[in-house]
Design a protein around this nucleic acid. Sequence first.
DNA 1: TCATTATCTCAATATGTGTTGAGTTATTGA
DNA 2: TCAATAACTCAACACATATTGAGATAATGA
Lengths: 124, 124
Amino acid sequence: MKEVQAINAFAAISQETRLRIIRLLVVTGANGLAAGEIGSSLGGVPSSRLSFHLSQLEHAGLVEKRREGRSIIYSAIFPALSDLVAFLMHDCCQGHCAYCDKAIELFSKCEGRPTSTENVNLKK
Amino acid sequence: MKEVQAINAFAAISQETRLRIIRLLVVTGANGLAAGEIGSSLGGVPSSRLSFHLSQLEHAGLVEKRREGRSIIYSAIFPALSDLVAFLMHDCCQGHCAYCDKAIELFSKCEGRPTSTENVNLKK
DNA sequence: TCATTATCTCAATATGTGTTGAGTTATTGA
DNA sequence: TCAATAACTCAACACATATTGAGATAATGA
């Protein structure tokens, strides 16, 4: 991940509505939610505002959309989120922080689907 | 962590100079760096600008400072960074993503000091 | 005490961002 | 084809943020 991308991504989520959208989509997972459902989950965000923020998030590379009938379904791009975290914590303690190293590795495995604890093996 | 704090933190790191400062301080670890060292590591940021950005980061709760002689030493607040990541990825896949759950747990253990892999145990 | 170094504060300016409302495009079912 | 629904685009305004330079404060060593 490049610095500009990281800056754009952080800028995207440093706004109330957008942060709420992303957190909602993180909980929702890979299936995503229709724009309208997002708006109502967030307590009735006006459509023009919602649309504006969704396109900001899309531009920042954090969400993607697909059309399904009348609806446009938005979902979080999980690798983008994990790259973002990795960029922030890169080389923690000069690369000698085993906690962060391992955490970054685990995040990168998330694909927006429920995972069983059995898949989580700490030894490489 | 509250939403406002998260928004302020993300806003703080969505600016080139500040993102670079934080990443530098993450690599540096708990010992921190003097303001002047930060400025020169970043390729000569003018002092008034550096000072402005450091105080923004401090306000956002991401760095702390202490005086040592003439210098003011800044260091990253590691728990704040891990809380931030946790806030973003909270309840991933409705709380059924074992990767993210574990990653969040590991991040929270980082204290800005090198860690040996022996300390990293994935079974609770 | 004085000069020096390190860092911060402040005000002015320029630039960027969020919100709003009106109007537009796309899809569906009658 | 038409009405209804879902979502988007655009322009205008208000507000927030970054940069700059000048000046202030704090600690050190001679």
